[in-house]
């Protein structure tokens, strides 16, 4: 087993274990922390794939911002309870649906003629940046407007008072 394969399996275990923790836990705060573990595992996978910039973005935005915002929301909505992963009466259907989708996807992956034995390569970060600000400049600006609108909308919605 090559070191990169070992790292890949370790990061995958963290990712999937964290994901199961999010879905299966009874405590919402543990769910948020499991999500953090899972997202850090995803960052590790980005590193294995030579996407250093995205790994950094993943740690900063998901680990730094999103999980913190979720934790704040949990404290403000005071959720303790929670049944376990089987709280909903349609959970067997959900399980069948999820496993069935996985089976279909795995079969599709196994049968598709994806070229095997490709080298994995990553671009230098400068190249990603250059392409983001030249070829993808308009979508990039649209994304920044989207973020601004979402920010203003979130403030307006969460502001106390106002009409209901």
């Amino acid at each position: 087993m090559t070191p990169s394969l070992f790292l890949f399996y370790a990061a995958s275990a963290l990712t999937l274990g964290g994901g199961m923790g999010v879905v299966a836990t009874r405590n919402v705060v543990y769910a948020a922390l499991s999500l953090l573990a899972s997202l850090m595992g995803v960052a590790g996978i980005y590193l294995v794939l030579f996407a250093e910039f995205l790994a950094l973005v993943q740690v900063l935005i998901y680990g730094g911002a999103i999980v913190i915002v979720v934790l704040f929301a949990l404290m403000l909505t005071r959720l303790r309870e929670l049944g376990g992963p089987m709280e909903h009466r349609q959970w067997p259907l959900a399980l069948v649906g999820a496993l069935g989708l996985f089976a279909v996807l795995a079969a599709a992956i196994a049968r598709t003629g994806v070229p095997q034995g490709l080298e994995r390569m990553g671009p230098p970060v400068a190249k990603v940046g250059a392409s983001l600000f030249s070829q993808w400049a308009v979508p990039f600006e649209a994304a920044s407007v989207l973020l601004l609108v979402a920010l203003i909308g979130a403030i307006v919605l969460a502001r106390p008072g106002g009409r209901d």
């Binding site: 995958s12 990712t15 999010v22 879905v23 919402v28 979720v70 909903h88 996985f102």
Partner: peptide, 23 residues
């Protein structure tokens, strides 16, 4: 691809089977 499919299905189960909107 298999890892991605597995993670997607875990998330799908969460969306379908949990009741708490934050989860």
């Amino acid at each position: 691809q298999v890892l991605s499919a597995a993670l997607f299905c875990v998330g799908l189960y969460g969306v379908l089977a949990r009741r708490n909107a934050v989860l």
